[in-house]
Amino acid sequence: MDTVAQLTIVRHGQSTANVAFADAHARGVAEHGLTGRDADVDLSPLGRHQATQLGRWLATRPADERPEHVVCSPYLRARQTWTRVADTAASLGVTLPPAEIDDRLVDRLMGDLELLTPLMIAERFPAEAHRLAANGLYAYQPPGGETFDHVAARVRAVLTDLNTRHAGRRVWVVAHDAVVIAARHLLDELPFVDLDTIVATTPIANTSLTRYAHADGRLDLVEFAATTHLTGGHHTAPSRQ
């Protein structure tokens, strides 16, 4: 086997920034009250609960469906997610692998625009707001930041290493929605414009699972942004738009 047996990508649980951005948008204001670095944003109470639910769900899965190797973004919210997942499973008698930290799995780097809401960008960097509108979300490169092509290059390198080092094993990646989008771009050979349409229909929810399985020498999508472990409903069907 020349790839991992399964690749499951988990978006981190809801963060305090997710809450603050949503609240600022709902109130139509620019400021969100956040300080510090994006890398240090932690989980919200709901995010901790989501990670707990995922840990409980994993503890109920057969051993041959649980991860054999876990790799995680260095960002606090991602590390907290897996720690809580693993601790919850351990409290139920199930041992999950510790997470290996990989700096290439960080969220999309926004440079000078880090942790700025759209209204904050419009007020402080009006020229950048115009550039973003003109170039589009995926092609736009903020000052000191990345385009999605840059994110995809990082994720490609991670996937290559995982396939080389962990071929035939079940691997979980705990990271960010940008990493999920980059993985779909690479593994499903989908243009970013197509992914924009898919994500508009099926958002990459916090603690959702995107899973691939080995088939005929490649990784095929099994489910996208699934939240069964959070809702008790049915898995989200694979989207091949």
Results as ranks from 00 to 15, higher is better:
Gln141Pro: 08
Ile121Asn: 09
Gly136Leu: 02
Pro62Lys: 04
His49Ser: 15
Tyr140Trp: 11
Leu137Trp: 12
Thr81Cys: 03
Pro74Met: 06
Gly145Met: 06
Arg79Val: 04
Pro126Met: 01
Val70Ala: 03
Met120Ser: 09
Gln53Arg: 14
Ala129Asp: 06
Ala63Pro: 07
Leu116Val: 07
Glu146Pro: 04
Ala139Phe: 11
Thr95Gly: 12
Asp112Arg: 15
Pro98Phe: 14
Phe125Gln: 02
Trp57Ser: 14
Ile101Lys: 08
Phe148Ile: 12
Trp57Ile: 11
Ala122Met: 05
Met120Lys: 11
Ala51Asp: 00
Val106Pro: 10
Arg77Phe: 00
Gly55Lys: 00
Glu114Lys: 11
Leu76Ile: 08
Leu119Lys: 13
Tyr138Asp: 14
Pro143Glu: 03
Val85Gly: 08
Ala99Cys: 04
Ser91Asp: 11
Arg56His: 13
Gly55Phe: 00
Ala86Glu: 02
Ser73Cys: 07
Ser73Thr: 08
Leu105Met: 10
Leu137Arg: 15
Glu68Cys: 09
Gly111Pro: 02
Leu116Trp: 01
Ala59Glu: 03
Leu54Ser: 05
Pro67Gln: 02
Asp87Glu: 13
Ser73Gly: 08
Leu76Glu: 04
Thr81Ile: 05
Ala129His: 09
Ala89Trp: 04
Asp103Ile: 05
Leu54Ile: 07
Val106His: 13
Leu76His: 10
Pro74Ala: 10
His130Glu: 15
Asp112Gln: 15
Ala51Glu: 01
Leu119Cys: 06
Thr88Cys: 04
Thr81Phe: 00
Gly55Glu: 04
Arg104Tyr: 07
Ala90Pro: 06
Ile101Gln: 10
Ala90Asn: 06
Tyr138Phe: 14
Ala99Asp: 02
Tyr138Lys: 08
Gln141Asn: 12
Arg61Gly: 08
Arg104Ile: 02
Pro98Leu: 13
Thr147Gly: 09
Gly111Cys: 08
Asp102Tyr: 00
His150Ser: 12
Ala139Pro: 12
Thr117Arg: 01
Leu105Gly: 01
Gln53Phe: 07
Asp107Tyr: 09
Asp107Gly: 02
Ala133Leu: 10
Phe125Leu: 05
Glu123Ser: 15
Pro74Val: 00
Arg56Leu: 15
Asp64Gly: 05
Pro118Gly: 08
Asp107His: 08
Trp57Leu: 11
Gln80Asn: 04
Tyr75Asn: 03
Leu76Lys: 11
Ala129Asn: 11
Ala133Trp: 06
Arg56Asn: 11
Ala86Cys: 09
